[in-house]
Design a protein around this nucleic acid. Structure first.
Lengths: 168, 168
DNA sequence: GCAATTTATATTGTGCACAATATATTTGTG
DNA sequence: CACAAATATATTGTGCACAATATAAATTGC
């Protein structure tokens, strides 16, 4: 057995005394919380046979698919996907190839500009959406966190991210 | 050039209408914020020639080192390190070997229990601490975020993490 | 005292992340 | 039109993360 980290039982003080103490570092809190969140999604991801970043890609493609259904023409290239998820092509290209192998997405060159690779969802990829939605709604009820707390935290994170982008 | 994600300019609504919309997912906010934070540390990490998880390991070892200096005897095995950082041995073992190669840490078997690998810091590893501290303090000033905002966000993240561990 | 179980770490394999670089296409400039 | 610069993606290489498994030492039950 690989030695598991076990339950998270760190002291999490909110004062922030020592600058270099591990628990006082926002970076570690973000890092630990992000991985814990991904772990919390594992039951769903196992059920859908997806990885977490693959699930994120599908969420974007579901949005694009809905936009196309509304008559819009979203930029559906790898670059647009990367800007949306803040991931680069070195991450996305192999990931998309695996998803293409599984029949979840299609990749083809844009006729107008042969440099861009257009990514679109398949019927098999569309079929995962209601299953994911059911999971997420069940999770919202099951977890011991209120909808307000989640919204507040998410909002603060995006504000913080915006400041990191401009000032950092 | 690898297509970079570019500046983070998502719409970050705080209402949370559509349940499956990407920007309404706390998981994505955490994931994006954590990676953005790691990016923000890159200048320091490049200067110290460390990776981000290696820096976290050093922070724990600095704490252990201070505890030893106070006459305490902290559990200094790989398992304790993993519980502290919520990482398992499959991640830590190769990482520690690389740090050992660079002369930053020492690894040896515990005489009392030959199963445990004791990890301790070297003088070269100690020498990085003041340099890191200087960087972190400079960062706190330079970033456009207040100390209070950072503390509040960090506190909320730990509370959230605790609930994920118990209820999720 | 010794087999069965538990505990602690290491190993193997897959899939991200991202830096550095390469390739190919398009666009601007003379 | 030729050709330099810009653009979009792909490739390569390193280092996490983590699941599944293997190995070895310690502990427990009898």
């Amino acid at each position: 057995m690989t030695s598991k980290p076990g339950p998270a039982t760190p002291a999490f003080p909110c004062d922030g005394g020592e600058p270099l103490a591990l628990d006082n570092q926002l970076c570690f809190a973000l890092y630990a919380a992000s991985r814990a969140m991904t772990r919390a999604y594992q039951p769903m991801l196992r059920d859908l046979a997806l990885t977490y970043p693959q699930y994120l890609v599908l969420m974007v493609l579901w949005e694009w698919d809905a936009a196309v259904a509304r008559g819009e023409s979203p930029d559906a290239g790898v670059g647009a996907l990367g800007r949306r998820l803040m991931l680069d092509s070195g991450t996305l290209t192999p990931l998309l190839k695996r998803m293409e192998q599984r029949g979840l997405v299609e990749r083809r060159r844009a006729p107008r500009d042969e440099r861009v690779t257009l990514v679109s969802i398949t019927e098999a990829g569309r079929a995962l959406r209601p299953r994911a939605q059911a999971w997420v709604e069940r999770q919202l009820e099951g977890a011991g966190v209120s909808r307000e707390e989640v919204d507040r935290l998410r909002c603060q994170l995006w504000q913080f991210l915006g400041k990191l982008g401009t000032a950092g």
